[in-house]
Design a binder for these strands. Structure first.
Length: 489
RNA sequence: GGCCCCAUAGUCUAGUGGUUAGGACUCCGCUCUUUCAAGGCGGCAGCACGGGUUCGAGUCCCGUUGGGGCUACCA
């Protein structure tokens, strides 16, 4: 247990939770939990235009769905609040003023238009497009003039003119950046808001974040962050930059790759525990050959040292495989609980099912869980358990239903089953096999047409156990219905 | 363009100078069974390339190539 270990997840409220962000959050959470430290949630909304209040809820929902709880945050509070950056502007302004007063930062009067124009010009000349630091050397008179003219100013950090900034990163190793290569970065916006760089440094310090764990896209920014820390006389936290998650084309996972938002995975029918496991395996290796690991095992084994530095492609097929593994090992009652909302949505289950009905659903779930990769495919594949309204698929028709002898077989079977005294897998099997024997055909000649008629498909769980879970009269009706439908062919 | 990072099969990965380069997903066979979309068994497929260092390199160094990130008053 080490409460001094503190990590944070610092998303900006954009209205949706990117799966890559959730991956980052997971690793930050895992490290904190493994070390017995604290996991802090902080909302980075210094870009006013982007901020929407509902968007914060989306972040909560995503984290909770995956089971990532936070020890400090906007809703739960904590000793270092507030945990929303827009509520901390005075704090940043204090530090900004301090830096200007100390001469470590300065006000810059260049307008965005001028900056863009100059950047374009530099690019055209084949130069690296960066700020030319012209306001750094303004005289007092020039500053006074600019202020008198009512020109708006942003605040820029005075970068060291030489030397290099060395990031010691737990995952990426030692990375060095030349200071002379970057222009003085903006740390305070004209609006009075801090930039991301300023806010992140101040908050990580004030919130006593010990390990800054974030995506690798921030590695280069760390140079600026460390210079702000130096100017403010803040200690440098330990850094760990996580590999980026890529789409199939090996570029940063984005909307054009398809499902990228966490809710899309919920809607696809992923179990949160499966996605948790899958995400953990992206960029981290548990060591052994076992990959299906419980949340506890993952926490237990997680270390930053075992994290990879190379980017990882999100492999949906493997995610689905993992999901199916979780469904297989889940008890029927639990599966029923997960399935119920989905089935209700499709009108396949009533709004308030009785305990008996739920017990039945659990039996159906147990029977089917070995097959479907996702909750949604499951609901599709099990449709015939819930309604008589299903289609006969192509294979069922071609292979069995349209065979000339099938209607007769179905009628005879219907007759037998209708008068069957007990309705359980065993007696149904007896009736089916009995009929086959009498007619003098293999059991398959009865079983297959029966499955096709009653389920509309050629695949599925054990026929007798499946029939057992359907009402006797339903099965009889479906057999006759199919016999009728295909009788004239 | 500049800076930085990355590089084991299609994908996720183990490997830390001496291994028949291991596991997982996918795909493909075979098999069991009343079906497979399940189970069992098996198979295809990899150290990007070129130089070094070394008795010996997937492993260390340099370069090339490829990919990615950053280069905003977005985070």
């Amino acid at each position: 247990m080490n409460e001094n270990i503190r990590t944070r997840f610092a998303p900006s409220p954009t209205g949706y939770m990117h799966i890559g962000n959730l991956h980052t959050a997971l690793f930050e959470w895992l490290f904190a939990r493994h070390e017995g430290g604290k996991f802090i949630l902080r909302i980075e909304d210094t870009d006013v235009e982007r901020h929407t209040p509902e968007a914060v809820q989306v972040i909560y929902d995503g984290l909770r769905w995956l089971g990532l709880d936070w020890d400090e945050g906007p809703d739960v509070g904590g000793p270092h609040g507030p945990y929303v950056q827009s509520e901390r502007v005075e704090i940043y302004q204090g530090y900004l003023q301090q830096l200007v007063a100390e001469g470590k930062a300065y006000e810059c009067y260049c307008t965005p238009e001028e900056l863009t124009a100059r950047r374009e010009a530099m690019r055209a000349r084949g130069e690296a497009p960066r700020y030319d630091n012209r306001c750094r050397t303004l005289t007092e008179a020039e500053r006074a003039a600019a202020q008198a003219a009512g020109q708006q100013a942003c605040v820029r950090l005075r970068m060291p003119e030489g030397g290099a900034t060395v990031v010691r990163d737990l995952i990426q190793g030692e990375v060095s950046f030349e200071n002379a290569l970057v222009g003085d970065p903006v740390i305070g916006k004209t609006s009075g808001f801090p930039t991301y760089h300023m806010a992140v440094v101040v908050d990580d310090y004030l919130m006593q974040i010990s390990h800054v764990i974030r995506a690798a896209e921030h590695l280069a920014n760390t140079q600026v962050h460390m210079q702000i820390q130096a100017a403010l006389d803040f200690p440098t936290p330990t850094y760990a930059h996580l590999p980026l998650i890529l789409g199939e084309d090996r570029t940063k996972l984005s909307k054009r790759h398809g499902a990228v938002s966490v809710v899309e995975y919920q809607e696809k029918g992923f179990l949160p525990e499966a996605l948790f496991n899958f995400l953990a395996l992206l960029g981290w290796s548990p060591g052994g050959s076992e990959e299906v690991l419980s949340r506890e095992e993952i926490i237990e084994r997680f270390t930053l040292e075992a994290c990879s530095a190379s980017p990882a492609v999100f492999d949906l097929a493997k995610a689905e495989w993992l999901n199916s593994e979780y469904m297989k090992q889940m008890p029927g009652e639990e599966m029923a609980t997960r399935l119920l909302p989905l089935l209700q949505e499709h009108g396949l289950m009533e709004a308030e099912p009785s305990p008996e009905r739920l017990a039945w659903l659990a039996q159906v779930a147990d029977l089917m869980k070995e097959r479907a990769p996702l909750l949604t495919t499951y609901a599709e594949w099990a449709r015939y358990f819930f309604t008589d309204d299903y289609e006969y698929d192509e294979k069922a028709r071609d292979k069995w239903l349209t065979k000339p002898e099938t209607p007769g077989v179905l009628r005879q079977l219907a007759e037998r089953l209708e008068t069957l005294a007990g309705w359980d897998a065993e007696s149904v099997e007896g009736a089916v096999r009995g009929l086959a024997e009498e007619v003098g055909v293999g059991a398959g000649k009865v079983i297959h047409p029966c499955r096709a008629a009653v389920t509309g498909t050629t695949v599925g769980p054990s026929l007798f156990h499946l029939l057992e879970l359907l009402p006797q009269e339903t099965v009889v009706m479906r057999l006759r219905r199919a016999a009728e439908a295909f009788g004239e062919q």
